[in-house]
Simulated assay, not measured.
Amino acid sequence: MEFDLIHFYVENAIESRNWFIEKLGFQAIASQTSQHTQKEIINRGQVYFALSSAITPESPVANFLNLHPPGVADVAFRVRDLKSVVAKAAVNGAEILQPIQQNLQGLKWAKISGWGNLTHTLVEKIDDAQILNSTSQLSKDLVGIDHVVLNVAEDNLTSAFNWYHQILDFQPHQNFDIQTKKSGLRSLVMTHPEGEVKFPVNEPTSANSQVQEFLDANRGEGIQHIALRTENILGVVGELRSLGLPFLQVPATYYSNLQTKALSYLSETEWQKVQDYQILVDWQEKLPGAMLLQIFTQPIFNQPTVFFEFIERKVVWVNGKQMSTPGFGQGNFQALFEAIEREQMKRGNLGKINMK
């Protein structure tokens, strides 16, 4: 299983398309208009998004936006055997929203219900040569969707995992319990046994948790962020900062505590850029040389809901094979949580936090 496409429901698909082009370096590749919905398809490298807005009240986008602010409505997965995946999903309780269909080019897909109001389009995997690829030189640095994070209500984490385990065969991979003096969250990282999909689920462990803030702003459970994987995070982030994309801030003290170790992995020039761009750094102790570099944007809509992550998993050679950090680092997760807490403080949802 692999991520295929993320579908956003927005207020104005064309304005959103233009924002993604101007601030994230995407390019427009298709535009579709039905009687009730405007749909724009965009991509950068191997990352594809759909942006849909309502033309009439009959549009499914209109119904979604009556329940939630703009956000992710559908996470699509590529699967090897669509017929068996859909059959298993149906037997285990998923609603089949769209039965298997096929276009003239032989592409097969179906749509099932997901957790809450989320849906999942399932696309039968085809040869890589048949997958649309960007021709833009600028776009070759995003190599795919690394993970997508689902936020659920308190005490729903186990239920959400059990649902995805039964419906799509996701397996537990990592657990995190992140706490500060002010708030906390619990996270379970799900992965699929066949492929690259990582699908973390978060729940709040305090009334003022960033997860609870999301749930309140989103008016329910949903996708909190999408991580885009790159093999050149310094180049990508440098470009995006020049385009004016706003990122979460990291205090200088974070880097002073890491400098000695970081300089055994990075050149002095690279380390300076990591600090200048405010990129988080972590390591996989069980895989010497493997390094995790991450950075997070501010929310992309008016509400503190959806944001993006850019992630690079540094590759190392082990016994003649290329390997990269497979999961997530506790240090980076804690640093992200604290960075979002500082943004909550600015919005007046937490007590004062000193930014050094």
Rank of each mutant, 00 (worst) to 15 (best):
I6C: 13
I6D: 04
I6L: 14
F8D: 10
F8L: 15
E15L: 11
R17T: 13
R17G: 11
K23I: 00
L24R: 02
Q27G: 13
A28M: 05
T33Y: 11
Q35V: 06
I42R: 14
R44M: 07
G45K: 03
Q46P: 01
V61M: 06
H68C: 03
L82M: 04
A87F: 01
A87H: 10
G93C: 01
G93M: 02
I100M: 09
Q105C: 04
Q105M: 09
G116A: 03
E124S: 02
S134E: 06
S136C: 08
H147E: 07
L150H: 13
D155A: 09
T158L: 11
D169Q: 13
Q174E: 15
Q179C: 00
K181L: 09
H192A: 01
E194Y: 07
F199N: 00
P200K: 05
N202G: 07
N202P: 08
N202L: 05
F214S: 01
L215E: 08
D216N: 12
N218A: 11
G222A: 04
L228G: 11
E231T: 13
V236N: 00
E239M: 05
L243T: 01
Q249Y: 06
Y255P: 04
S256F: 09
S256R: 15
T260V: 10
K261Y: 11
S267R: 08
S267D: 12
E268S: 12
W271C: 02
K273N: 14
Q275K: 15
Q275N: 11
Y277T: 01
V281G: 02
W283H: 11
Q284Y: 10
E285M: 07
L287S: 02
L287Y: 12
M291V: 15
M291W: 01
T297Q: 01
F310A: 04
F328E: 06
Q330Y: 12
N332C: 09
F337P: 05
E341C: 02
M345F: 13
K346L: 14
I353Y: 02
M355T: 01
K356L: 09
